[in-house]
């Protein structure tokens, strides 16, 4: 790890200004990505601004049935929050199936949104990687790519977005609130989560629309009654402490055997947390029967592009999507 200087921030504006002013200054929150990649020599800031003592830790149930999650709330705190558990079980579940108990105590929600990919070629600090060093190439395309993405890829990058909790957040149309400092002064911004995670395209190094120094302050999840009966299904080799090969966040509203509303998102298969819009569109108004689930899954995965090593992923994703929908509709207890 290169030498760094350290600043303990005690106000949001100061922290944002300090980081904005210097491209070699990074925020330090839970540290589970930042410290790891500093030690890997992948991130090389000269200065860290410790934001852990900023007052951004609250978790607040909103009158519309939604919830506002402070960026520095820890994953474990959000997972255990009663409001989150009741209103958005898929969020709690995704959090609890992520990482380990220790990491969940450390990692912040804002940091989770900003976490880096797990691609070994990105992490080794020296392989060709367009995300780490634009223009250097993508070693994963012809390399070991079992865990890599099949949706939203480009010829420049196929790294999978690693977050679990971002998957239900995408399904739920969450919004990301930030603080920003520009020449004209301090301000706040608000990003729809659908626009927050960028596909690699020609610029894999650009992962989100934030300016350098722009700080996530909160994640707001709008109220959505059908999310009270939602699930997060995660498929992986190991029973725990592993990133998803495929995951599905799903919520379904069914009336008389017909799907009234549905939210679906996929993890582990996309270069971003993947909202399954096409599957949702197919399902709304369709009878909740296995054939329709399978058709929806097929439609969603029809553009999947695979390598020899991850060729199983589209089929696994289809089956996982179907399983999630079957599980949610199986007992027929919905109205």
């Amino acid at each position: 790890m290169r030498p760094v200087t350290y600043l303990l921030a005690d106000d949001v504006e100061g922290a944002v200004r300090t980081v904005t002013a210097d491209p070699d200054t990074h925020f330090l929150a839970g540290g589970t990505t930042e410290v790891d990649l500093l030690r890997q020599n992948v991130l090389t800031p000269h200065r860290l601004v410790d934001i852990n003592r900023l007052p951004l830790t609250g978790i607040e149930a909103l009158p519309d049935g939604g919830v506002r999650i402070g960026a520095l709330a820890r994953m474990s705190e959000v997972a255990e929050d009663r409001g989150v558990r009741e209103r958005f079980p898929m969020i709690s579940r995704a959090l609890e199936l992520g990482a380990s108990a220790q990491l969940r105590h450390m990692a912040s929600m804002g940091g989770n949104m900003m976490q880096k990919v797990r691609c070994g070629y990105y992490r080794d600090g020296e392989s060709p990687c367009n995300k780490r060093l634009p223009g250097s190439g993508c070693a994963a395309l012809t390399g070991v790519s079992r865990t890599h993405a099949v949706l939203g890829t480009s010829e420049h990058c196929i790294a999978t977005h690693p977050s679990d909790v971002a998957v239900p957040l995408v399904a739920l149309d969450a919004r990301i609130h930030t603080r920003i400092h520009t020449r004209t002064g301090d301000g706040e911004r608000d990003h729809a989560i659908g626009d927050f995670f960028l596909e690699p395209g020609d610029t894999p190094d650009r992962e989100h629309p934030l300016a350098h120094g722009e700080l996530i302050t909160a994640i707001e999840v709008p109220g959505l009654p059908i999310a009270r009966r939602s699930l997060y299904l995660k498929v992986r080799d190991r029973e725990s402490y592993e990133f998803a090969l495929v995951s599905v966040a799903a919520a379904v509203d069914m009336v008389d055997g017909v799907i009234g509303d549905v939210r679906l998102a996929l993890g582990g298969v996309g270069t971003r947390p993947w909202r399954a819009i096409r599957a949702e569109e197919f399902l709304i108004g369709a009878p909740a029967i296995p054939e329709n689930f399978e058709q929806a899954a097929r439609i969603e995965l029809s553009d999947a592009r695979t390598t020899a090593m991850n060729a199983f992923k589209p089929e696994l994703a289809r089956r996982t999507l179907v399983r999630a929908l079957e599980t949610l509709t199986r007992d027929g207890s919905q109205r």
């Binding site: 350290y6 540290g31 589970t32 220790q102 105590h105």
Partner: peptide
Amino acid sequence: DQGTCGACTVWVDGRRVLACLTLAITCE
């Protein structure tokens, strides 16, 4: 030294965390 094994687990303010991914200076 990269948050994948748990052998460095200690408590900070009573919560179990990984000491390898925690900078000591942040524990003041």
